[in-house]
Simulated assay, not measured.
Amino acid sequence: MPVDEVVVTTIIDNVFDALLTSDDRVTRAPFASGSVAAPQFEGGRTFTGLRAEHGFSALVTVRRGETTTTLLFDAGVSPDGMTTNADRLGIDLQGVQGVVLSHGHFDHVGGLAGLATRSRLPMTVHPLIWTRRRLLLPGTGGTELPTLSSAALEAEGFRVMERREPSLLVDGCVLITGEIDRTTDFERGMPPPHQAWDGSDWRHDPLVLDDQALVVHVRGRGLVVLTGCGHAGAVNTARHAMRLTGVRRLHALLGGLHLGGPAFEPIITPTVQALAELAPDLVAPGHCTGWRAQAALAAALPDAFVPSSSGTRYTLAAA
């Protein structure tokens, strides 16, 4: 169902830039966000700004008519990073009505413990989110990544709902894509060092099948697509959202696009070309997108590109 407005607030991202400016679509966090004790200053306090960490978390507030619903999409990497920034931004996480996890990598779920102490919430996940994974880099014996625990989440009071297929939340106003179709010939996923445990051995895990996105249809504008890492590929994700909804207009693409580093930089050009053809009104790539891809997107879509930063609020209203 189309909505009247969606507001996406980036609580945690890899960057906090206190000098970025606001405009009619984007509101930046003030430089003075957060105040802490610091005895070296007169008055004994200083401003901290917001935390930036290699993780992602966003608050999504959807309004349709007189009804407003707020969801949390991912939770950052550190146990207290998301809640610290929420406090500094004046966000009361008690108002969150549900949680959506984009996938199981630890840099998207680490802050859940801080949230669980405040609320008892429904949580939508893909059933493969509990997959054990590791990175087997050359010259190492492999580093196993922290694995999310279903039992721990249930014990904290979360009501976990596993859904492989697309699902609708908020009275049909929010789409969670479930598994995303892989149709492009260049978005091939993770390189061989990224492995998953299959029950008997470690195997290359290129697809990260638990990767899913959150989609909202803003009336008269088109789709707003929010990704965590975009492991399925930014283009695959956007096109999949269009196929599921029947809406042919991409209004905004926000979140991690996983185009950083030598394994993914070779696909920056075709990704940017395909996204430019979709002609979104707003592109705010953050987290794992990488600076080269951000620069390419800024050059190809100068009117749409907005640099991401912790504490940024995007307001996308119906036409």
Rank of each mutant, 00 (worst) to 15 (best):
V77D: 10
W291I: 08
P39S: 10
L50Q: 07
A241P: 13
V160P: 06
V60R: 07
P127I: 03
H231Q: 07
G157M: 03
T227K: 02
D13Q: 09
V96T: 01
G95V: 09
T271E: 03
V208M: 12
S200G: 11
R25N: 07
R219Y: 06
I129P: 14
A234W: 10
T21Y: 03
E42A: 14
P2E: 08
V26C: 02
R239P: 01
V3P: 13
A300K: 07
F264D: 07
R132N: 04
I180R: 00
D92T: 10
T61L: 01
G246Y: 06
E187T: 12
A37N: 10
A279D: 15
I12C: 07
L19I: 04
A38L: 09
P266A: 00
V26R: 14
T117W: 01
P146V: 01
S310A: 15
L115I: 00
G189I: 05
T183P: 02
L112F: 08
Q212N: 10
R249D: 14
S167Y: 07
G189S: 03
D13G: 11
L223V: 12
L153W: 02
T227M: 09
A86H: 15
D87I: 09
G228Y: 08
F31W: 12
H258C: 04
T312A: 14
G43C: 08
G90Q: 05
H231Y: 15
A196T: 04
Y314Q: 03
T315I: 07
V170D: 12
T227N: 11
G290M: 02
V26Q: 02
L223R: 10
A152Y: 08
D205F: 09
L223A: 09
P206W: 08
G290E: 02
M242C: 01
P206A: 11
D80V: 11
E277G: 08
D185S: 13
A299E: 14
E187G: 02
V224C: 03
G141Y: 05
Q273D: 15
R219L: 08
G178K: 07
T27E: 13
H105V: 08
N236Y: 06
G111P: 13
R313H: 05
G104A: 06
L112E: 10
H258Q: 11
A152W: 12
A284W: 02
E53K: 05
L121C: 02
G76C: 04
P191F: 06
C173N: 12
P30M: 01
F41P: 07
R25G: 07
L209A: 14
R292G: 09
R219D: 09
G228F: 07
D17T: 13
G246H: 10
W197V: 03
H204Q: 03
L153G: 14
E179T: 15
R133K: 15
P266G: 01
H231I: 01
V99S: 02
T117F: 00
P280S: 04
P146A: 04
E187I: 10
P30G: 03
T269K: 14
G139P: 13
S149A: 11
R313Y: 01
Q212F: 04
V208K: 04
V235R: 00
N85K: 09
L19S: 15
T67S: 13
T84S: 12
Q195N: 10
L115Y: 05
F41C: 08
A317P: 09
L93D: 02
A298G: 13
Q94V: 02
A234E: 05
L145A: 08
G139V: 01
G261R: 06
H240K: 04
